[in-house]
Amino acid sequence: MTDVNLIINEQIEKYGRERQALMPILQKIVADKNYITEDELALVAEALDLSAADVYGTATFYTFLDVVPRGKYVIRVCKTISCHMSGKDEIIKTLEKTLGIKLGETTPDRKFTLLQANCMGWCHKGPVMLINDEVYPELTPEKAIAIVQEYIAK
């Protein structure tokens, strides 16, 4: 995990100490550790001379900029129509069972968070899930278990 100040400075160098650096900074923090804490948001706000509330408001607008604790691997199962029709419910049930958590929850070891998200652009190969940035299309319950097992082993 990188120090947040490092991320902030790196992105400011790239995008300037301007508001347009906000998304790249937040995205980088999330890429690094999957969610942004209160202290980190306050730091970002200060670095860009923005209001902390404003930064909070911006972060919460975006589904992928989580401000609540998430696991090391965030699993997002597509819940939109094509994946719904091709069996996302079953995938979620399977994952809930495998991970021992409910949708929206994080495993006690902070390794996995299980979420739903909207259409991910793989409708012809549903059901599909993202684990962090990695895509897993054409899922079956068996495939889903196998994939998650790999991550468990990591």
Partner: peptide, 20 residues
């Protein structure tokens, strides 16, 4: 120029909120 209040979340969950 205080911005104690901001708009947070989107859609049905959108609300007026302070920091966290």
């Amino acid at each position: 120029y205080v911005s104690a209040l901001a708009v947070a979340y989107k859609g049905e969950h959108q609300k007026i909120s302070t920091f966290f």
